[in-house]
């Protein structure tokens, strides 16, 4: 019975993936892709990976869907490319087919014989878990054992945001925020905003002992910011460059600052004293949550500031 459910989920997954690529209308493709994110969240639960399921639910159902829908609305004004499937005779189709089939064949061959791990990393994780300051292994890996990776990951996010801000158009096209004048929407959102913030903080706090943590909390927080923006509430804070960029740097700076505190006591960078590791991790995670949420939101905001201007003569 369990295998049947798994097989059904995989079939739905592959079906949605094909539909989202080969349906003719772009809007339909985006809808199927959003639905695929939902199914992926279910799949991650089946795979006993609730942390990833949480992140996928927040990102797939929240941020990615909105980013794509919003881009779609703007790209509609561009020249419409004809549906691709009619050009079946093109060499491009055969190239794509051969590459896709080749990838499937090679990967299936590769995973058909399982590899024995050379190092039992999971044993090392469970042995050192008591000293890490948290009881949830994934948080321990991300913020204690492999905190260099996480630090650099946040640096990558900041870098992406910096690239996006250099592409921003000049101030002659100010961000026009369409406002939804619906009273019921605003009444409901007054209820939902505090709930989303609360859930975000709950995920952050829960990350020490159970699935949750800075990434999931940050993704949920970003969704809250986007919701703020979509209904036309004040986003003056985001218009100011100092607050905008300061928010990106905040998490990274806090991470480096907290990480270098052990240097004062002659310890290496990013090694926390065992007794206070929990507090260090919580502090870093709080900074990371705020920064990740802010970076993802400002990426959404920056993509807004590139309106499609109609040229009089092409």
């Amino acid at each position: 019975m369990n295998e049947l459910i798994d097989l059904t989920l995989v079939c739905i997954l592959l079906g949605l993936a094909s539909l989202s690529l080969f349906t003719q209308s772009l809007f339909r493709a985006v809808m199927f892709f959003i639905l695929l994110g939902l199914i992926l969240a279910l799949v991650w639960i089946r795979l006993d990976a609730p942390d990833i399921a949480l992140a996928e639910a927040a990102i797939g159902a929240g941020i990615t869907g909105i980013l794509l829908l919003d881009a779609l609305a703007h790209l509609r004004a561009t020249s419409n490319t004809p549906p691709q499937l009619r050009q079946l005779k093109q060499p491009r189709f055969w190239l794509a087919l051969i590459s896709g089939a080749g990838v499937i064949l090679l990967l299936a061959l590769a995973i058909s014989e399982p590899l024995a791990p050379a190092v039992a990393l999971d044993l090392q994780v469970s042995e050192n878990l008591t000293n890490s300051g948290v009881t949830h292994p994934i948080t321990a890996i991300l913020l204690n054992f492999r905190s260099y990776d996480t630090l650099l990951e946040v640096a990558v996010l900041v870098l992406a945001a910096l690239v996006a801000v250099t592409l921003r158009q000049s101030d002659e096209h100010p961000v026009v925020n369409e406002y939804l004048p619906n009273p019921l929407l605003h009444a409901c959102l007054k209820l939902f905003f505090p709930m989303i913030f609360l859930v975000s903080m709950y995920l952050l706090w829960a990350g020490a002992a159970q699935p949750g943590g800075a990434f999931q909390a940050g993704a949920v927080l970003a969704a809250a910011f986007v919701l703020f923006y979509l209904v036309g509430l004040k986003t003056q804070l985001a218009q100011n460059d100092i607050y905008l960029k300061g928010g990106w740097i905040f998490g990274l700076a806090l991470f480096v600052l907290v990480g270098s505190m052990p240097l004062l006591y002659g310890q290496p960078f990013l090694t926390y004293p065992d007794s206070q590791a929990g507090i260090f991790i919580l502090l870093i995670e709080l900074g990371l949550t705020l920064s990740i949420g802010w970076i993802l939101f400002s990426m959404f905001l920056l993509s807004q500031s590139s309106p499609l201007q109609k040229k009089d003569s092409p």
Binding site: L54, L185, V220
Partner: peptide
Amino acid sequence: RDTALVLALLAMLVAIAFVGRV
């Protein structure tokens, strides 16, 4: 259950974005 909670909170985001934008 936490995943369900997140999904329930964010499910309407797509609808709002759709009505407001697309």
